[in-house]
Simulated scan of single mutants.
Amino acid sequence: ADKASVARYLGGNIKTALAQKPSSFPQQLLTALRSLVQNEYRLNNPECGSDGWLTEDALWLISKTTADRVRAWLLQHGVASVPENNNRLFDELLTHQLIVANEDKAIWRCIIRSDKGWSPVEPLTLLRLTPSVIWGQDDQRPACFDGDVTPIIEAEPAPELSAPTQPLPEIADDPRLGDNNNFLQWLKNHTSPSTTVNTRNGKVHVVENHLFLISPGIFKIYASETTGDTGDGWKLAQRMFQESGLALRCNDDSFIWTCEVCAPQKKNSQLKGFLMEAPGRVLGEIIPVNNPWLKLVPAME
């Protein structure tokens, strides 16, 4: 009787549901996800054997397990139009915004670390959901995971930099680009500890309890979004930042620091950028863990 009731709601292929108006496929997917997570999934096991992990801002579910079980659940309840291929199913979840995209992809590769010391040998492939997709305001959520879920960033080529000690070309003195209060406020508004820090191709990372800003990428985005400048305006913003006292010196000649990217199964590469003390000045009270795949190269005297 329960299965028939659910099938009627989902527009499943049973006689008692023929007179019902079929619900949309996004609603069918959502119902399957909610039922699995709320009634069947084991979350937040501090040692092993979890189907997912709930953090303050995200619900992380094992990707293949979830795809297979969503498909099985829908078929069991009479919904036949389910993609047989997991990638197609992931595309459906992305298209209907039931999962959070990792840029243009469904899959996130993450390191899981329990406060009790447990961590998988290899990073896991996960789907990321907004918790409110699964639990409404009146639903009781499980307690958050006692540990960390850290997305892995992919290495990107080290950007070309203008050496701080070299003369910079003539730049229009746009007060919006040269005002560090403007830059800091923009950085606060555009930086989220849960979605933009320590991410693949992200421009802001936590390294050795400092904030690492990849340059020139962060300043190019700032200049473009603040003034629409896609030329050399970023150089003024970078120059004013390095002269503001907010940036730590790498040595007597440079403010530019280097981080080695040590991602699994990737050739080591480097990122260049600025280092700031007190990440809370930008990130607030929630400070992500240090990015495990970035290693700061010691400053040369």
Rank of each mutant, 00 (worst) to 15 (best):
T130G: 03
A17I: 03
S215M: 13
Q265I: 08
S35V: 04
L59A: 10
F241R: 14
A4P: 00
R69K: 14
R176I: 05
L124I: 02
E160D: 07
F90V: 04
W257C: 02
Q140S: 10
L126E: 05
N45Y: 12
T195R: 13
H96I: 03
L30Y: 03
T66L: 10
L33P: 03
R128T: 00
G178I: 07
N291G: 03
E156L: 06
L236P: 08
L59I: 09
R71M: 05
R109P: 00
W118Y: 13
D68M: 11
E208S: 09
K116M: 08
N86Y: 07
E156F: 10
L294Q: 09
K295L: 13
P46R: 12
D51V: 04
L89A: 02
V207I: 14
N87I: 11
T226K: 12
S5M: 13
V206L: 01
T191L: 06
K15W: 12
M276V: 07
L248P: 01
L33M: 14
Y222A: 08
R113C: 00
V204H: 10
E156S: 06
A101D: 00
Q97V: 07
I256N: 03
L213H: 10
A32C: 13
N291A: 08
D57A: 15
D173Q: 11
T165C: 10
I214H: 02
A7P: 00
D232C: 08
I214M: 05
K267L: 10
D91I: 05
G233S: 08
L236K: 13
K188P: 02
Q140Y: 02
Q270V: 12
W135N: 00
H205N: 08
D138C: 03
L187M: 12
S119W: 01
G49T: 03
P279S: 07
R71T: 02
I107M: 04
D57R: 14
K295N: 09
T226L: 08
D179E: 13
P26Q: 13
L126Y: 00
S224I: 07
S244D: 12
T226E: 07
K295Y: 03
G117E: 01
S269V: 08
P131A: 06
E92N: 15
Q185M: 07
E122T: 11
S50Y: 05
L177S: 10
A32M: 08
A106R: 10
F183D: 09
K203S: 12
I171G: 04
A106N: 02
D138L: 14
K203F: 11
Q166W: 02
K64S: 12
A101I: 01
Q238C: 09
G117D: 06
A4G: 09
E260P: 00
K235E: 05
L94V: 04
G284Y: 07
V204G: 06
S269T: 14
D253C: 11
A163T: 05
Q140C: 03
A106C: 05
